[in-house]
Design a protein around this nucleic acid. Structure first.
Length: 111
RNA sequence: CGAGAUAGCCGGAUGGUCGCAUGGAAACAUGAGGAAAGUCCGAGCACCACAGGGCAAGAGUGCAGGCUAACUACCUGUGAAGGCGACUUCAAGGAAAGUGCAACAGAAAAAUACCGCCCGCAAGGGUAAGGAUGGAAAGGCGAGGUAAGAGCUCACCCGCAAAUCGGCGACGAGGCGCGAUGUAAACCCCACUCGGUGCAAGAAAGGAGCGUGAAAUGCUGCCCGCAAGCUCCCGUUCGCUCGAACCGUAAGGCAACUUGCGGUCUAGAUAGAUGGCCAUUCAAGACAGAACUCGGCUUACAGACUAUUCUCGCAUA
RNA sequence: GGAGAAGUACCCAAGAGGCCGAAGGGGCUCCCCUGCUAAGGGAGUAGUACGAGUGAAUCGUAGCCAGGGUUCAAAUCCCUGCUUCUCCG
């Protein structure tokens, strides 16, 4: 995932948490809010998911899952993906399916 | 052959492809650990004017010698405890400097007399043999001795221990002499060490405010002395990786470690870089992710390997 | 990344070397009161595990986050972990 697409500022995160509209799947929670500077995606993996190694692994899998979808996602929004502790159990194929499912439910995926 | 002891080492490998971070014009190169962890100690570094003096308070350490930048670590010894043994473990100074505590029980918990025994008409005195209690009861046991008794005396044993000898030293041998419990991870005494805060330290740049001394502020308190700067915001750049570095080798040393020579440059992110897929292979991959950097300690951990090493047992020659 | 604090019953907690066989309050269980309920009153609740005992009464051992140590004796003193919480941009 390219650096320009990442959500960085703490203030932006809190804005999305407060104002964003939510959609969820079994393992993921997606928050969306209007963006002024193009596509921005942030990942949130709390300590409940596991230790540092498993948290890193979850983030990497999510980034890999996002990679093929980058061009399809509606670029006028900021997104935050929150991982549920159960994500630690999944493998790559499951994570890809989950990511696609959660964006499709939010209606932010164009064909 | 079996059961151990000790020391050390490794922590899946190889290739292809799509991505990420840093450096580079590009090609390309490099890219988590033995514990990166816990933050339990010790330093470097930065700021507090120099990190200065004195007194007080506080904290830590506690056998000796060595090693180190430094240490409460480490090494080699000493002593004690455990083990048949190789070996392992230990916060291991002082209890006649003083104070406190030792519940319950017991007469009594440190110089004490309830029962008993003895002297005495009695008052009172002597006594630690015997009794009961307790974790602990005034060295043990026998003989002499005595009014009854008592290391009061003696033999043997137990503990402490002077002279002297050996060792750099802890200490060991020795044994004149002595026989008033335990607790200092209770206060304390003695000896030694320590200023504080931590890279979210801080510096430069930018913005705002206060101030020229009777100040404010200056990181435990007070006193002395000293300083013209101080506080807040911002989080761009620096700090940020060449360092008490790592690898190899030689010499010295029992060892920790030191010195010489040669070689190497080996993560530097800032919502935070190592992943996905495919193939081959084996013993089928545990614990686990750098955030200023080192030296230790502690804790977690699948499995694999090494040793002219050491001990015990069995068998055979 | 760094700096601290706290763990005692189901919950809130006192205790700070022997009298702890662990105070007190809430909750829970049983009883009284009432036609019934609430309120009120009384009793019980670390009676958990293991062992002794036919069973009951009773007794022993362990147990104050976990594991060691000091002490005659530890919830309390000392070390090492674990968990939770707070502060520093």
């Amino acid at each position: 995932m390219k650096r320009e697409y990442r959500l960085k500022k703490r203030a932006a995160f809190t804005y999305v948490y407060k104002r964003g509209e939510k959609s969820a799947s079994r393992h993921l929670l997606l928050l969306c809010a209007k963006s002024g500077e193009g596509l921005k995606i942030g990942l949130s993996v709390s300590k409940k998911v596991g230790n540092a190694v498993t948290r890193n692994r979850v983030k990497r899998l999510l980034r890999e899952g996002l990679r093929p979808l980058e061009q399809k996602i509606n670029p006028s929004f900021m997104y935050v993906i929150v991982a549920h502790p159960s994500v630690a159990e999944l493998d790559y194929a499951d994570v890809c399916a989950e990511v696609e499912k959660v964006f499709r439910r939010a209606g932010k995926l164009s064909e």
